[in-house]
Design a protein around this nucleic acid. Structure first.
Length: 264
DNA sequence: CCTATAGCCTGACGGC
DNA sequence: TGCCGTCAGGCTATAG
């Protein structure tokens, strides 16, 4: 599920619920999700601290304590956060629960166990080690930089948009939305784009991300002419009346309009 | 550099 | 109703 807009909503949620509350205990229920730390060490290092700030890069969420450590969360395909008052309301597939001194709990839920839990003392370094590209919402990201990052690419546009090393945060659904709104076929070759095309992609991408975050990443709250709400083969295109079809691109299912989305 | 494939996990869905 | 295959908004490793 979670792509950049979803994780940004999670970040805002954590910001509004889990900051400045003393951590009383940390329980990892599924140690397989821990990337480079034991559950004991994680619990020990976070114990008695509080989260003081949040951050996000692409699909990674950072919960920063006021001291040395930052909790790193990735949500895989099915992850989310739940801040609850009672233990009974913690969703059952929770893979980690953080108990605060105020009696509340922050649960990290990850049904399919495709996410990651880690601790770092250097979030910037963590991002660098992963080889993540720039975040589309970051200050320094510009149309020119996007052009530079796409220039050496030989493959399909959809694959490039989803490649976290080129650009961090776009997944299957939002890559389809960007292509839909810019009118490019998902198998458009990156090499066939000119600068104006990439700048157009940049502008539309920013707008889609802003709109989606504004809609709290809920598909039914997106504008009616978004593909995301009509992501099914055989449906009419909400923009041109053409037809939505599905295809495979680099192993992923892509939905697109056969009438207004064209290759270059 | 690229693509396709398989694998990691679990639950929902449709067809029989 | 129950079983079974397929599919799902992520990512990695491998082979070609």
């Amino acid at each position: 599920m979670p792509e950049l807009p979803d994780v940004e909503v999670f970040r805002q949620y954590a910001e509004a619920t889990a900051l400045h509350k003393t951590i009383r205990s940390v329980h990892v229920h599924e140690p397989d999700l821990l990337e480079s730390i034991s559950r004991q060490q994680l619990a020990q290092r976070l114990n008695a601290l509080h989260f003081a700030d949040t951050g996000r890069h692409g699909k990674y969420l950072f919960l920063k304590t006021a001291k040395r450590w930052t909790l790193v969360l990735h949500f895989g395909m099915t992850g989310y956060l739940a801040y609850t008052q009672s233990q009974a309301k913690v969703p059952s597939p929770a893979r980690m629960t953080i108990d605060f001194a105020n009696g509340y709990h922050l649960a990290y839920v990850c049904q399919r166990k495709l996410g990651v839990i880690d601790l770092t003392d250097d979030p910037e370094g963590y991002i660098r080690e992963k080889g993540l590209g720039p975040d589309p919402l970051a200050e320094g990201f510009s149309p020119e930089r996007f052009v530079d990052r796409l220039k050496p690419r030989r493959g399909f546009l959809k694959s490039a948009l989803m490649n976290q090393k080129i650009l961090a945060g776009i997944g299957n659904v939002y890559s389809d939305e960007i292509l839909f709104q810019t009118g490019f076929h998902p198998r458009t070759a990156v090499a066939d784009l000119d600068k104006a095309d990439v700048k157009d992609l940049f502008r539309v991408m920013q707008e889609i991300i802003d709109t989606s975050v504004g809609a709290r990443a809920q598909p039914d709250k997106l504008p009616p002419n978004y593909l995301t709400r009509r992501r099914k083969a055989g449906r009419p295109c909400p923009r041109c009346g053409g037809q939505i079809e599905r295809t495979q691109v680099a192993g992923r299912t892509a939905y697109y309009c056969t009438r207004h989305q064209k290759k270059r």
